[in-house]
């Protein structure tokens, strides 16, 4: 077995580690930046997360894939503290954060972006980033302007700094999501489908940006449908379907797994 197949209830991050495949055998002793065990999230009768365990090592880039409705975004919400989970535990470094709210988790160093951008519409892009820098990044007032400007430059938004968010286009708002998350100076960043709708050239820039983030020591978890972009950055892939982790491990092996193929293409081609 070259990846970990998750059984409901039985799955834990430790189990994932114990069964670590050869492809990433070098890492079991590495400290985890973010580890979740047995997460359950119910919406009425729908089980959006069905005992999901997930972990990301410090400085690692993990990709999350899966068909629509697999629970990827719900996983992000649970990790970022947008809503409480019904069961399971989440640890950040060694600290349990399961009961903390989104703000406290952000102050500890977890940032996330939204798949559908949610900017502060009556502010300029610069002010959007400034809010995140001051509140989440704890950047002192005197440095916050430079900090915000630097992040706008890195995300290619500097020419639009004084555009109101309400007037910015979708792609710029997607970049703004990344900029705002970066401005809070996180150690773990959760990116939710930031590549969708970008041209090839823009994707190259985005990949450069994320590689740069990773080079600066950031732990990256990235949900993305554009596999070839994702595979240029991540070293481990987690595939989800119907609220469960279907497979995880080396990207190529995960993608060639029959269960993953069946989840994506409807039926097992073999």
């Amino acid at each position: 077995m070259s990846y970990t197949r998750t059984q409901p209830a039985a799955a834990t991050a430790d189990a994932a580690l114990a069964q670590a495949p050869a492809g990433r055998a070098a890492t079991p002793d590495q400290p985890t930046a973010l580890a979740a065990r047995g997460l359950v999230k119910r919406y009425g009768s729908l089980l959006a997360l069905d005992h999901v365990s997930f972990h990301a090592f410090e400085g690692e880039a993990v990709g999350v894939v899966g068909p629509n409705g697999a629970g990827k975004t719900t996983l992000f919400g649970a990790l970022a503290g947008t809503f409480p989970v019904n069961a399971g535990t989440i640890r950040f470094g060694g600290t349990p954060i399961t009961t903390l709210g989104a703000r406290d988790r952000n102050l500890m160093g977890i940032a996330r972006t939204y798949q559908v951008p949610r900017p502060f519409r009556d502010m300029t892009l610069f002010e959007n980033v400034l809010v995140a820098a001051r509140a989440g990044g704890g950047v002192p007032a005197c440095e916050s302007v430079d900090h915000a400007a630097e992040i706008l430059e890195r995300t290619g938004l500097l020419p639009l700094a004084n555009t109101p968010a309400a007037a910015a286009g979708l792609l710029d708002l997607k970049r703004l999501e990344v900029a705002r998350a970066m401005a809070t100076r996180p150690s773990v960043i959760l990116l939710d489908e930031i590549g969708g709708g970008l041209t090839e050239a823009e994707l190259v820039t985005l990949i450069e940006l994320i590689r740069g983030m990773r080079a600066s020591g950031l732990t990256i978890v990235w949900i993305e449908h554009i596999l070839h972009a994702l595979l240029k950055v991540v070293t481990r892939l987690v595939c989800m379907a119907e609220g469960r982790v279907l497979a995880e491990g080396d990207p190529q092996e995960v993608m060639s797994d029959p269960a993953v193929r069946s989840a994506y293409f409807g039926s097992d081609p073999s």
Binding site: R103, N106, F120, M123, G136, A141
Partner: peptide
Amino acid sequence: TRLGRAIKATSTDAEAAELCGVDA
């Protein structure tokens, strides 16, 4: 001001504001 921007951000989208570290 920091407080003022926090108030405005909260009014637009409290959830997103919290994710940016704003105490809504």
